[in-house]
Write a protein that binds this DNA or RNA. Structure first.
Length: 322
DNA sequence: CTTAGGG
DNA sequence: CCCTAAG
């Protein structure tokens, strides 16, 4: 059943109802669930449940990262011609809840086949990578598990800490946008994540596509900074300055494993830029003007401070607003 | 490894 | 975000 050659997703349960109406026979659809991409997770048996959750989260986020689009499947066959009418395609009132299906497909942009969940259901993780392991009790035995369906994983979970520390790893769910510009998933929702836990010996191991086992380092998925994160960053920079990103990370993002100090440095750079351009040119979740003002103030202060320090190699670390 | 900047 | 020359 290799029907979908481009986006070979696993066939999962799905159902919907098509209700009929009067005169013009409008096709009413009640989509109860989407067919979702199949994900492959590989994790050590010694990993914690918390890390398992995070790993799945990573995999899901990775798929969503490239954006999603919707695919229509009629009678098990993917409908590609977007120009056809429902009538021409065969989607009508006399078509019942068994022939039509919808699927979430990744918008696999460019090179990154590894991020796209697997291929056909018959695909079996190649055993060419793992070297014959010396089987000891605590050896790297891994659990290969297929994850089916994550549509229901969407859940609210905001744990804002009034302090200056950014909450754990609350990854705001990317807002997938399809060709017609509609959002399929609420962008205000957040995929629930687990706080912390010891070991980190986990890794999402996307299945090899075709014969490319030489996948280079996968580009990290985009994670827009939330206003809460910006708040934490601003507060940390106000106190530490713009030349100690390592400390900024430790101070305000120690729990956010996906935010490196380089990321914070980069974010600050864009924040300064954002604060300088008109509000109309800004994109993404609007950052409160109040914060942007603080960004400019802190930027000006520390820039000047950094300059002085260059002249007088001797210095006493100053501190803004303290 | 951390900074600092360009890509 | 990534890549990296410098320190």
């Amino acid at each position: 059943m290799q029907i979908m050659e481009h986006h070979p997703w696993d066939t999962l349960h799905y159902d919907l109802e098509i209700l009929t109406m009067s005169f013009f026979y409008p096709v009413k659809l009640r989509i109860k669930s989407f067919r979702v991409p199949e994900l492959f997770i590989e994790i050590p048996e010694t990993a914690t449940v918390g890390s398992l959750k995070r790993t799945v989260m990573e995999a899901v986020t990775a798929v969503l990262g490239g954006g999603l689009r919707v695919g229509v499947i009629l009678h098990g066959k993917k409908v590609r011609d977007d120009s056809k009418t429902l009538l021409q395609t065969g989607i009508s009132h006399d078509n019942h809840l068994d022939a039509l299906g919808f699927a979430l497909e990744p918008n696999c942009s460019r090179n990154r086949p590894s991020a796209c969940a697997t291929t056909d259901s018959l695909h079996i993780p190649s055993a060419d990578m793992p070297q014959p392991l010396i089987g000891y009790p605590s050896s790297p035995a891994v659990i290969h598990q297929r994850i089916q369906g994550f549509s229901n994983m969407l859940a609210k979970h905001q744990a804002t800490s009034s302090g200056n520390l950014v909450e754990s790893d609350h990854d705001s769910a990317p807002s997938p946008i399809n060709t017609s510009g509609e959002k399929y998933l609420s962008d205000s929702k957040e995929l629930i994540t687990v706080p912390e836990m010891g070991m980190e010996a986990l890794a999402v191991l996307p299945v090899h596509q075709k014969s490319k086992r030489t996948e280079i380092a996968q580009r990290r998925i985009r994670r827009p900074f939330s206003v809460t994160e910006v708040e934490a960053l601003v507060q940390a920079v106000e106190k530490l300055g713009t030349g100690r990103w390592r400390d900024v990370k430790l101070r305000a993002f120690d729990n956010a494993k996906h935010r490196t100090y380089v990321d914070l440095k980069d974010k600050w750079k864009t924040l300064v830029h954002t604060a300088r351009i008109s509000a109309q040119q800004r994109r993404g979740e609007p950052v409160p003007q109040e914060l942007l003002d603080r960004v400019l103030t802190a930027h000006a202060y520390w820039s000047q401070q950094q300059t002085k320090q260059q002249l007088k190699h001797h210095s006493t670390k100053p501190c803004l607003l303290l």
